[in-house]
Design a protein around this nucleic acid. Structure first.
Lengths: 137, 137
DNA sequence: GTTTTTACTTGCAAAATGCAAGTCCTCGTG
DNA sequence: CACGAGGACTTGCATTTTGCAAGTAAAAAC
């Protein structure tokens, strides 16, 4: 509830996308699932940036409503749920990759990641395929 | 003032980028400059989605501080300023393109733009080059 | 010299965010 | 099977950000 659908929708595809992940955290959650393999609420909560628990819960609901992630009971652990990216969510791989490459090109303090980013740049198709397949690059 | 630099910086390139344009409006401003050719405050204010004037002013300041846009006096009109994308800003073209293509693939109501997006998909290099050059696609 | 244009500020209500502290199951153990 | 611990969230505010409306300042036009 608290529907936020198409609040700013103008017909522009960029605006459609921002309606879904145009905020501080949504893309980071998607990144944690796509490149870090995070699957549970706890794993997402322990991400690199420290999202707070209420925001994470809200974002997961929104992303689920937008068809980016699914939520299912963990068959092996009754108190746990497994979040997963849908095809629509995995298909954000190229967006994440372009954002990361842009940062690598323009963030003067991106030394730590350069090896990683160089590898992605050298084989973008492969990196994208691996991300889509859920194999951490 | 009200420094927001690296508030959430974790070293991740995605987080670096979101620090700069991870909000509701920044990318739309960049889009208006990159694909609509908006150059003045007034043109940006009259964008497709209706940003409010105080937010626009603040975003322009942040984007300028982040090296994405420049602001200069209009030599032909003393009361006007000309905003322009820097190389760093123009280099966001691939990000905008991937976002738009993703929306085209997954927004069921994206009929109006399909012709446009198909053209981009058919010649991504060209579309990117044209956006970079400031030629509206 | 008065009115318009252009580019912003300012004020304030409403919404979103962030932190800390619960709550509600479920599982593992004695 | 009681009991503590784990996992996934809510709930309650204080703080921050957003958004609308209105106001200001300086250059152009008339």
């Amino acid at each position: 509830m608290t529907q936020s659908r198409s609040k700013y929708d103008s017909g522009c595809p960029v605006a459609y996308a921002l309606d879904i992940f145009g905020d501080r955290w949504s893309l980071l959650v998607i990144r944690d699932m796509a490149v870090k393999g995070a699957r549970t609420y706890g794993e997402l909560l322990a991400g690199w940036e420290g999202i707070s628990t209420n925001i994470l819960a809200q974002r997961l609901k929104q992303l689920e409503a937008a068809g980016i992630v699914t939520k299912a009971k963990d068959p092996d652990n009754g108190r746990s749920y497994v979040y997963a990216l849908t095809e629509k969510g995995r298909d954000l791989a190229p967006v994440l990759i372009e954002i990361a490459l842009w940062s690598g090109r323009h963030n003067p303090a991106a030394h730590a990641m350069t090896g990683f980013l160089d590898k992605i740049e050298a084989d973008r198709q492969g990196a994208e395929a691996r991300m889509r397949a859920g194999e951490l690059p």
